[in-house]
Each structure stands twice: as C-alpha cells, then as structure tokens.
Amino acid sequence: MLVWSRSGRALVWALFALVFAPLVLAPLAILGIAAFAGDWNSVLPASWTSENIREATAGTNYDSLVVSIETALGASLIAIVVGTWAAIAARGAPRFVRRLTDAVFHLPVAVPSVVVGLGMLVAFSDGPILLNGTKWIVIAAHAVLVVTFAYSTVSAGLDRTDAAFAEVAASLGASPARVLLRVRLPMLLPSITAAASLAIALSMGEVGATIMVYPAEWRTLPVSIFTLTDRGKVLLGSAVTVVLLVATLVVLMVVGLLKGRVEERRRRR
C-alpha cells in the first residue's frame, strides 16, 4: 500500500533485514550460542558443552535464582496491591488528590534506579526502620521501581472499563465492598495480570538499584551475572543469563495459567 512495485518492496525488505538482523536478532542469538560454547575464539565456538548451563543452575547460582524469583514475586505482589489500591482509590477521590496520586505514582519512572537504591541506603541504614543488610531493602527497592508500572497499567485498565457496570451493581443494592470484589476487581483482572507480568519481568532483570543495596546473602541473579562477567567468566555469565530468561518466562507462564484458572472458575460460577 506504500511501496507498489515488487522490486521496491524487495529492496525495502532487504534493508529491513539489514537493520533488524544485526541489531536485534544477532545479540539474542549470540547469547544462546555463548551459553553452550565450550571454547570460543573464532567466528563460531570451537567446541560445545552443557557444562555452563549445569553450573548456572547449581550452587551459588541456584541460590541467586531462588533469591531473584522470591524478590520478583514479593516486590511485584506489594507493587500490585499498592498500585491497584492507589489507582482505584484515586478514581473516587477529589480531583487534586487524584492528580497528586497520579504524580507520585508516576514519578519513579523518572528517577534512575541507582538513585532509588542510594535513597534506600541513606534512609534505611539507621533510624527507626533499619533495612540495610536485610533482604527487605532489595524487595523494597524493587517494589518502588515497579509500582509505577502497576499503577499506570491498572489506571489504563480503569479508563477502558465502563463505570456503568459498577453503577448498575450499586443501583441493584450491592454494597461498595461487594461492588469492588465482585464487579470492579474481576473486570480489572486482565490489567492486573498484565501489570504483574510486567512487574515480574522488570524485577527479574533489575540491576541498578540492586547492586547499590544488596546484602551478601541476598544476591539476585543479575548481580551474579555481573560478578561473573566482571571476573571474565563471560560464557558462564551467558549461561546464567539464559537461565534468567527461561526462569522469567516460566514465572510469567505460571501467572498466565493462574489467570486462566481464575477466569475459568468465574465462568463456571
């Protein structure tokens, strides 16, 4: 519809491939190759091995994987609860309260992750709430970083759902709590699961704030990967990265399955 001749289209597609392949495909492919490379000094690895993958799922790397998953789930859960609560409550609040909530919950996207980490260090190293040195400082930092995505995804979902449903339910005599639990939250389920997936994916890959605040016994996978590559163990680092990606996909799939189960149950009711 834009380029009419066959030769013109072929030229455009060739250019597309020329940009897309090295820019997007090559980096993704190369990590997969590196994860299974035994010895790599030329164009392609000289030998292949699954040793790196085995090492990436054992010992300290396994511990880091568990830490990463726990951190992602914990931080995402907090972020979803707080973000959803804020988004729904802001709807009913007076205009200026709503705008204030909007501003506060959108702000973390504008603050570099290292600064969020630094703030955590400055605020929670002493005083009434002492988090530094515990896993909670990592989880708190992650929650702050992803809450903005939870808030804006749920807000966008609220924009799309029709307020009339809740009003009809209320006019039928349902209490606000019942309207919330039986009408508004179920209708927001797709947005909430989308927000959860995004939050988990971001948290699993977070490195900036984590590297500022992590205590020795709560090292997430990205930090482990950095430590490995910093020491020159790039092939093992690639293997751990592949494990991180696979783990993220698995967690996201589980979230998707849970969502399907909830919807299924509701349909049967």
């Binding site: 090559a26 980096p27 993704l28 190369i30 990590l31 590196a34 997936s197 995004l198 994916a201 971001l202 699993m204 890959g205 977070e206 490195v207 990205p222 990967i225 950095f226 590559t229 790039v234 680092g237 690639s238 990265t241 991180l244 990606l245 993220t248």
Partner: peptide, 10 residues
C-alpha cells in the same frame, strides 16, 4: 521485557 544488560553482554 528483557533486562538491558543482556544486550551489553551480547
């Protein structure tokens, strides 16, 4: 949804 350091590593 990927972490950015993945690109740097590649």
């Amino acid at each position: 949804a990927f972490p950015s350091f993945l690109i740097a590593l590649a």
